[in-house]
Simulated scan of single mutants.
Amino acid sequence: MTENWTEQHVPDQTGRTAVVTGANTGLGFETARVLAERGATVVLAVRDVEKGKRAADRIAGEVLVQELDLTSLDSVREAAASLRAAHPRLDLLINNAGVMYTPRLTTRDGFELQFGTNHLGHFALTGLLLERLLPVPGSRVVTVSSTGHRIQAAIHFDDLHWERSYSRAGAYGQSKLANLMFTYELQRRLAAHGATAAVAAHPGMSNTELARNTPAAIRVPVTWLAPVLTQPATMGALPTLRAATDPAALGGQYYGPGGRGEVKGHPRVVASSPQSHDAEVQRRLWDVSERLTGVVFPV
């Protein structure tokens, strides 16, 4: 396996179509930029279309913008319908968008915001687009998780939306654990089809806007120490890019930075928590997610 893997290792993507959520800034922007520079047609699936257009103007290549608000299942369905109509085939779906450590808020459908955005919105989008990926050789669904999946690591089926008590970190950890469990269960279901793979990635500690909701007592010192503690978004996007494009990547793998503690460094295959591999919980989460979103997968 290649050590010190960089964006220069991304193979030619000419003729491929990629959808990247949350691609107007940070990790999503860098992921979209590299894919477009390598020849892919890239769709920036973003909540703010004007910001998406400004981001597209900064990328060299064929870049399109699609409105997508992951906090609204109606928006997810509308975006998926537009994407299906415009693209008879999809090669890459990169579930990158996310929120972190927000106050307790709900999506338009009443889901806790972090679980609803990070997991349920992407779950629904994937299910609605999967038929465009299934026939395409080498197609992949890449979902961005986090080392935060180890925070209070459990799926709280008795209180999924944190209505009894709320922990910003705990809710974030649940949503990122759900991202991994979704990937592993999706890969198990895709295995019989052969063409499409589900892969996960995490960016380590990257200097992006994601931490803007972190409480000030934590955010201020981390901001001062950012040059030491974090890596730039260009590096943080590499695990996602490797999961999406490395010919050697396999379904069910998880990529993250290779440095100490997976904080920084070049991407490699990393391990996720024991809880994330609980197949019974994965299946239960899948069933609950289909019921909550109303999206039933074709696998």
Rank of each mutant, 00 (worst) to 15 (best):
P135H: 14
W162P: 00
G261H: 09
R291W: 04
R77Q: 05
A271P: 01
D69W: 08
Q275N: 02
S167V: 06
R140L: 13
L250K: 14
T240S: 12
R219K: 13
A237M: 09
Q282K: 02
V220K: 10
V76Q: 04
R140C: 14
S75I: 10
R89H: 10
R164G: 08
S139K: 06
R189Y: 14
A178D: 01
T6P: 01
Q66T: 03
E112L: 00
G148K: 03
V288C: 02
L134Q: 04
Y254M: 08
T41L: 14
D91P: 03
D159S: 09
R268A: 10
W224L: 11
L105H: 02
R291M: 05
V49N: 05
A40G: 08
A243Y: 15
G39K: 07
E78N: 09
V136I: 13
Y166H: 13
H9M: 04
T126M: 04
A153C: 08
V19M: 05
L64D: 11
H156A: 08
L35P: 03
H277K: 08
G148Y: 01
G259A: 00
R108S: 11
R268C: 11
T214M: 15
D278P: 02
L64R: 15
A81E: 15
Y101K: 07
I155Y: 01
V49S: 03
A79Y: 15
H122I: 03
I151K: 04
V263S: 05
A191S: 15
M235A: 10
F29Q: 04
Q66I: 02
V65L: 06
M1S: 13
A226N: 11
